[in-house]
């Protein structure tokens, strides 16, 4: 079973072609990291996955259903890049994580004890339970990102999609986020799809890498991709040395 399937998908912004006839299958339960240079289309790929953008041609299926027919959006947890736009927004960690339950509950329905228990579980899982009554603006970047992951987990998603989740976060915070995502993927069986520039950590934590460079030029095991990158770097270095000697 595939969480996402791209079949001959093409997408272009005005004056900039991003993908032409892209084919991609992301299996349920996988931990996929999308890597590539700036403007390669990493965030665009995520936005196509969540229906925020529509392809020019081709078809995208989510759990076997075309995007237009897919209804269970609350089962896809999304963590955008720089999710906290206003640091002075008067809201606590618990109030944010509770938003994860909103779409699933439906309009007019109040949170019950079961929903509050799920919120508490999500807070505990990401390790911010002790910060639940803190204002979000008072937390560090790493803690804020954990809160956003907790909000996504509170929806009890089948897939977690994250756009550069460690941008602007220090090394310790970054390691913590990757380790959290790995345990979410391994222990809860949630499919993880993220965009990253951090090849070193991606190699350690992700199972699969999708490398975008004028289209999809690699899709497969993360360790193989990293070995390939290392060989390419060595070849380039040796070539450079040979030129210097000559």
């Amino acid at each position: 079973m595939n969480a996402f399937e791209f079949e001959n998908v093409s997408f272009a912004y005005p004056n900039h072609n991003v993908f032409s006839h892209l084919n991609l299958r992301i299996a349920v339960g996988d931990f996929v990291a999308i890597v590539g240079g700036n403007g390669a289309g990493k965030s665009t790929l995520l936005k196509l996955c969540v229906g925020a953008l529509t392809p020019d041609c081709g078809q995208i299926r989510i759990f076997g259903l075309p995007v237009a027919a897919y209804r269970d959006w609350s089962k896809i947890g999304y963590v955008p890049q720089n999710p906290l736009r206003d640091k002075s927004f008067p809201i606590t960690v618990e109030e944010i994580v509770a938003m994860g339950r909103v779409a699933g509950l439906g309009i007019g329905r109040r949170m019950r004890k079961g929903d509050r228990d799920i919120v508490t579980r999500a807070l505990r899982l990401v390790g911010v339970d002790n910060l639940r009554s803190q204002m979000i603006g008072n937390l560090s970047g790493g803690q804020q990102q954990r809160v956003m992951v907790a909000r996504a987990l509170a929806a009890e998603p089948e897939t977690l999609i994250l756009d550069e989740p460690t941008a602007g976060i220090d090394a310790a915070g970054t390691e913590g986020i990757y380790s959290l995502l790995k345990s979410v993927n391994k222990d809860l069986g949630i499919t993880v799809l993220l965009v990253s520039h951090d090849l070193e950590r991606v190699a350690r934590y992700a199972g699969t890498i999708a490398n975008l460079d004028e289209g999809l030029n690699y899709y497969g095991a993360a360790d193989r991709f990293c070995r390939r990158q290392a060989y390419a770097r060595t070849d380039a270095a040796l070539e450079g040395e040979a030129v210097n000697h000559a």
């Binding site: 999304y78 955008p80 999710p83 927004f89 509770a98 938003m99 909103v102 779409a103």
Partner: peptide, 19 residues
């Protein structure tokens, strides 16, 4: 509509994606 208004006010993009 309180909880929906709060969600949309705080993060319209994620609220839209969550349906």
């Amino acid at each position: 509509m309180f909880k929906e208004l709060l969600f949309v006010t705080f993060d319209e993009e994620v609220a839209r994606i969550s349906g």
